[in-house]
């Protein structure tokens, strides 16, 4: 049976459920914005959204094009500065960081800088932007990305943003804020967390209709599979309606 929702809608709804009411989230471009806006319109009305250009606690009317767009400080608690929001993140005020990623390894290290050699790039990507800051400072980072073998890599060409670096304790040893790091990875196939002992990517739940084989086949590295794997909830009609309301042009959610 063909599902009556799209993969992007599923990604957005699963991601929104990771967020909690009364907490703060640092949000990147696109799907992370949609997921946070959906959380506010469902279970987390008091989710504090923070944008890197200085938007703090806005009532975002429709999906912004940019994290610096005036929609990111529409009826906001404050229209501030990057220095302010980056500093308050470094000081521990931000619970969740929400990032898109091009490629990751099994410790959740992210590459958004370059494919190939840095000085002779095969493909040049935009670079860190605020991603390294979010991955360094936020207590828990959530990654939203497309899962393919060429994106779930044994070794990324460039570590733009820190995951768990080389494993347990590596972040703290490098000098990054203690006790923070990647928390969830959400792809079109499933929902992942990181194993407490090894800090390696571990399957938490598959999306409806997805098999464990598909999970593994779409990764170059071995994904830890626990005995009990859950299944995510598909988007409800109400959630799908809200997604259209948030993104009326289908900019990120599609048409």
């Amino acid at each position: 049976m063909k599902a009556d929702y799209t993969a992007t809608e599923l990604l957005a709804t699963v991601a929104s459920k990771v967020l909690e009411d009364g907490k703060s989230v640092f949000v990147g471009t696109g799907l992370p914005m949609i997921a946070s806006m959906l959380a506010q319109r469902t279970h987390a009305p008091n989710l504090l959204i923070i944008f890197e250009a200085g938007g703090i606690g806005p009532r975002v009317p429709v999906l912004p094009i940019s994290v610096g767009d005036s929609r990111t400080f529409h009826e906001a608690a404050a229209a501030s500065t990057m220095h302010d929001v980056m500093s308050l993140s470094q000081a521990g005020y931000v619970d969740y960081g929400f990032l898109g990623a091009a490629m990751i390894d099994w410790y959740g290290n992210i590459n958004t800088t370059v494919i190939g050699e840095h000085d002779h790039p095969k493909v040049r990507l935009p670079g860190s932007g605020g991603a390294n800051d979010v991955g360094s400072f936020c207590w828990r980072t959530i990654l939203l990305m497309r899962q393919e073998k060429r994106r779930f890599l044994k070794k990324v060409d460039f570590i733009t943003t820190p995951g768990y670096l080389t494993g347990p304790g590596a972040r703290e040893k490098a000098g990054l804020p203690a006790g923070a790091g990647p928390y969830r990875v959400i792809t079109q196939l499933g929902l992942y967390d990181f194993d407490e002992a090894t800090k390696r990517l571990k399957l938490l739940a598959v999306h409806p209709g997805v098999t464990i084989e598909q999970i593994q086949d779409n990764s170059e590295f071995e994904i830890l599979i626990p005995d009990h794997v859950g299944t995510t909830e598909p988007p409800t009609p109400e959630e799908r309606r809200l997604l259209r309301e948030i993104d009326p042009t289908g900019m990120a959610i599609g048409k």
Partner: peptide
């Protein structure tokens, strides 16, 4: 990173040679 660029400007506006930060480490 974005935070680091604006902190480079912060160091400059303060007339300091550098600013300490807790990001980019390990990457």
């Amino acid at each position: 990173s974005n935070a680091v660029y604006q902190w480079r400007f912060l160091a400059a506006m303060m007339g300091l040679p550098f600013i300490p930060t807790r990001n980019m480490l390990g990457t």
